[in-house]
Computed example of a mutant assay.
Amino acid sequence: MTQTLMDRALIEEATKKSGLIWVHGSDGPPRALWHVWHEGAACLLGDGPGEQPFTGLGLTDGGDATVSVRSKDKGGRLVTWPARVTELAPGSDSWQAVVGELKAKRLNTPDAEQVTERWARECRVLRLEPAGAPGELPDGSLAAVPPATPATTRRPIPAALPKLLRPGRKKRGAGRA
C-alpha cells in the first residue's frame, strides 16, 4: 500500500494531538503508551524503572508494529497505521533530539536534572515511523481485559463518612449567638 499525502497528514495530525497511542507489536495485546511526535514519527520512552513498560509487546529494532490513535476529545479511534520500529542508540544525535522533546513532555519525573543520563543508562527510546497507508477501522470494539496488577484503588469508606455527607448537617458553632 502506498501512502498518499493525505494519509500522511491524517497520521501526523491525529498522532500529534493524541496524548496516548495504542501500540501492538509482534507479541501480546496492544498497550496504551505516551509519546511525542518528532520529525515524522511517534517516539516512545520506556523499559526503565519508573517508566512505561515495553516488555511483552515485541517491539524490536527493525520490527513492525501497528499504532491506533484515539481522539483527544471523544476518546474514539481515529486512525490505525502500520509502523517500522527503530531503537535509537543512547547519545546519538537523533537520540539527543528525541530525548529533548521527551524530557519537555515528561510529567512528574523525580530526577529532572539527571533524567537524560538515567534514560541513557536504563531506558529504551523507540521511533515508530509510519510504514504505509492507514488501515480500515474494525467494526468491533477490540476491548480487552486489562493486564493483572497488584495496584488497587478500592478501599472501605470511613465509618464516619455517611454522617458527614448527610444533608442538612450544620457546622459546629453555626447559629450560636
Rank of each mutant, 00 (worst) to 15 (best):
G50R: 02
G58P: 01
L59I: 04
W37S: 04
V79R: 06
G75Y: 06
G46A: 08
P53I: 00
C43R: 11
L59M: 00
S71M: 15
D64E: 13
D73S: 13
D47M: 03
T80D: 10
D73A: 12
S71F: 11
L78D: 03
R70M: 13
W34D: 07
E51W: 13
T80I: 15
G75W: 05
G62W: 00
T66Y: 08
Q52R: 09
G76E: 12
K72P: 08
K74T: 15
P82L: 09
G40Y: 13
G48E: 04
G75L: 12
T80E: 10
V67N: 04
H35D: 07
W37N: 13
L45K: 00
L59Q: 00
K74G: 13
G76L: 06
G46F: 02
S68V: 05
R77K: 11
R70I: 14
T66E: 15
K72W: 12
E51K: 07
K74I: 07
D61N: 03
G76T: 09
L78F: 03
P53C: 01
V79G: 07
E39L: 11
L45I: 10
S68N: 03
D73E: 15
T66A: 15
P49Y: 06
A41E: 00
W81L: 02
G40I: 09
D47H: 00
A41W: 10
R84H: 14
W81F: 14
D64T: 15
G50T: 06
L59S: 02
A83C: 02
T66Q: 13
T66I: 12
D64C: 08
G63C: 10
C43Y: 00
G48K: 08
A42K: 11
G48Y: 04
R84K: 14
G76Q: 03
G75T: 12
P49W: 03
A83Q: 04
G40C: 07
G56D: 08
L44I: 10
V69S: 10
G76I: 07
V79A: 04
S71V: 09
Q52Y: 05
T60G: 02
L57S: 04
L78A: 07
R84S: 15
G62Y: 09
A65F: 03
P53R: 14
H38W: 15
W37M: 14
L44Y: 02
T80Y: 11
L45M: 15
L57P: 08
C43I: 05
G48D: 09
L78R: 10
V69R: 10
E51S: 11
V79Q: 12
P53E: 04
D73T: 14
A42M: 15
H38K: 08
P49L: 06
V36E: 01
W81T: 07
F54W: 00
W37T: 05
P82E: 10
G46D: 05
W34A: 12
F54A: 02
E51F: 12
P53S: 06
G48L: 01
D64W: 01
K74A: 15
T60C: 01
G40N: 05
A65M: 00
L45N: 07
G46E: 05
C43F: 05
D61W: 06
V69Y: 03
A41G: 05
S71D: 10
K74Q: 09
R84L: 13
E39C: 04
H35I: 12
G58E: 05
P53D: 06
K74V: 11
S68G: 12
E51D: 10
V69C: 13
G48H: 08
R70F: 14
F54Y: 01
G63R: 07
V79W: 11
E51L: 14
